[in-house]
Design a protein around this nucleic acid. Structure first.
Lengths: 134, 134
DNA sequence: GTCCATTTGTCCGTATGTATC
DNA sequence: GGATACATACGGACAAATGGA
């Protein structure tokens, strides 16, 4: 399971392991991960290290935390399709702290930025919007 | 500076403070942040807490770490323009750990995913690519 | 409603490793 | 070699919120 003598850090090994369970469907959307204490005991590592691993998955947008109920596999949001218009430019970045609260964005969710030819910008949560080029 | 009795966590207050210095230009691109030890001493907090604050800025893509030289305000990458073709769909998300290494992505940088009508996907680092709709 | 167990959040201190200068 | 700086990992402690008995 966890190899303390391995080259890869323990918390990354645990993150890999949990990520694998999520991607394989063993842990489905909405399902709870074991508690931090439980994971620490199961793998004989400290809670600090468990939190590092889960922190990794949070920044990847794979899990969300509902404190103090637990940590859950993220449920995909319904996606809204938006049509690009001529001359639009599209980029993506992480939201600022202000934008996060403004759009009620979860952790690990980027924003899509559409810049029109006149220079005006529109910001969309990347987990709820997909852009199309007709 | 730091208010231990405040509602906002200490590490968030420090992150806010450093983010403010970056956004105001007081800390310009490429400039080094004070060392973790230095920040800990300056604000009379533990290095652990300093690392939490800097970790926050890393996930926001504002700073990069060049270990063990120091932590620096990120320098914007040159942007390559890519033309979208008819029927393309565009989304963005955070990369997995594997993708991060594969594309040599910095922390806090999302990826742009272009899905062609045939279902094939192409992944681009969002800090080096901007998409255009001709 | 109260009490209590559970779970995540925050903060501290310490130790060791590794890479750079 | 030595000093510096970030990375990893452990341990402990208390707070806050939820939920069930």
């Amino acid at each position: 399971m966890i190899d303390h003598s391995a080259d890869r850090a323990v918390f990354r090994q645990l993150a890999d392991l949990l990520r694998g369970q999520i991607e394989s469907g063993e842990l489905g959307p909405g399902e709870a991960l074991p508690s931090e204490l439980r994971l620490a005991q199961d793998y004989s590592i400290s809670r600090t290290t468990v939190r590092q691993a889960i922190g990794q998955l949070r920044t990847e947008g794979l899990v969300t935390v509902d404190r103090p109920r637990g940590t859950f596999v993220r449920i995909p949001e319904p996606v809204q399709l938006l049509q690009l218009t001529r001359g639009d430019k599209v980029s993506a970045r992480m939201p600022t702290d202000v934008e996060r609260r403004r759009h009620k964005l979860a952790e690990g969710v980027p924003v899509l930025v559409i810049t029109a030819p006149d220079g005006s910008e529109k910001v969309h949560p990347a987990d709820r919007v997909q852009l199309t080029r007709p």
